[in-house]
């Protein structure tokens, strides 16, 4: 294939694109809808992920220590817990901090505060809040803590209570896990179906557009044109549809995300779709324009094939 052929293919593709104005416009519109859906699913995926992460983040396990537990022992335990591969972070709340928190929480509850006053000494023990990397890993962490507790039976155990072993807390954790997991799967399935349907519609539109040219393709064959020479201009057209639709979609997303930005920031785990769009623009460009171009080229390639069989 030489330079002249390449030039002819591009010229022919561009000319056909221009002269078949209405067909081109219709194809671009349908393809824009497709790419818009693809873009929306990207946003939906991100929003879903952050919302689910936000939910998962609310889960933790708290270890309550006895009031007389020495701090160095607690910090030692925190160290060994931190060393566990499943643990994302730990937060140590000393007995004094726990008391301060308690006071703050009950600042309007005079009765409780009075009772606390009466008691004199700090009735609260220190607390270690543990966050796992994944919800499913709390079980392993709790097992580890239980082991630690068992090991120290010789001395008095410093651990008073691990809330993971409360039936309620455990149930809440498990429910949270199953909800987030199934929401994630369901979201993915819906997204995939939506994308598949719109791609199919787009494919069909291009097939119809090329169907109108089927006699031309046959004439080209009879005049002695090779398959590639017939097919390539149609692919140029398809790529052009994808390119234009992709750019239109990207432009449409700008005001749309701007408009929705603050609303999504309030609702779904604090992600602002507008700032996300702007900061990930190159990725959006690559995915949306790339999808359009590949879709256009592939649909044209396949649609022309069936008329080349003479």
């Amino acid at each position: 294939m030489n330079w002249t052929t390449v030039k002819r293919i591009f010229r022919s593709g561009l000319l056909d694109f221009w002269r078949n104005g209405f067909v081109s416009l219709a194809s671009i519109l349908v393809m824009t809808v497709t790419l818009f859906v693809v873009g929306m699913t990207l946003f939906a995926g991100v929003i879903l992920q952050t919302a689910l992460n936000d939910l998962r983040d609310k889960a933790d396990v708290s270890v309550y220590f006895t009031t007389n537990a020495p701090e160095d022992k607690i910090l030692e335990l925190q160290k060994s817990v931190n060393a566990l591969p499943q643990v994302e972070s730990t937060q140590y709340v000393s007995a004094d901090d726990a008391l301060a928190n308690f006071r703050e929480r009950h600042q309007n509850d005079q009765l409780t505060l009075q009772a606390l006053q009466e008691l004199g000494a700090n009735p609260l023990g220190a607390v270690l809040n543990i966050k796992a990397k994944d919800i499913s890993q709390y079980d392993a962490i709790a097992q580890f803590l239980e082991q630690q507790q068992a090991l120290s039976t010789g001395n008095a155990s410093i651990i008073d209570k691990i809330n993971y072993f409360d039936a309620q807390h455990r149930q809440a954790l498990e429910r949270l896990q199953s909800i987030t997991d199934s929401a994630g799967t369901l979201g993915l399935v819906i997204i995939l179906i939506l994308v598949a349907v719109t791609i199919a519609i787009s494919f069909n539109t291009l097939r119809l557009a090329i169907y109108t040219s089927r006699e031309e393709i046959q004439v080209m064959r009879l005049v002695g044109a090779g398959s590639f020479y017939i097919r390539a201009p149609f692919m140029v057209e398809g790529v052009l549809y994808g390119l234009i639709s992709g750019l239109v979609t990207l432009i449409l997303f700008y005001p749309l995300t701007y408009w929705l930005g603050s609303a999504t920031a309030d609702f779904f785990g604090g992600i602002n779709v507008f700032s996300y769009y702007v900061s990930h623009f190159l990725q959006f460009f690559a995915i949306i324009v790339g999808t359009g171009v590949v879709l256009g080229a592939a649909a044209s390639y396949l649609a022309v094939r069936r008329y080349l069989k003479i």
Partner: peptide, 15 residues
């Protein structure tokens, strides 16, 4: 149909 008389003839040569 999308090509002029000239282009129709030229097409056979280009092909």
């Amino acid at each position: 149909p999308q090509k002029t008389a000239y282009e129709n003839i030229a097409f056979a040569m280009e092909a």
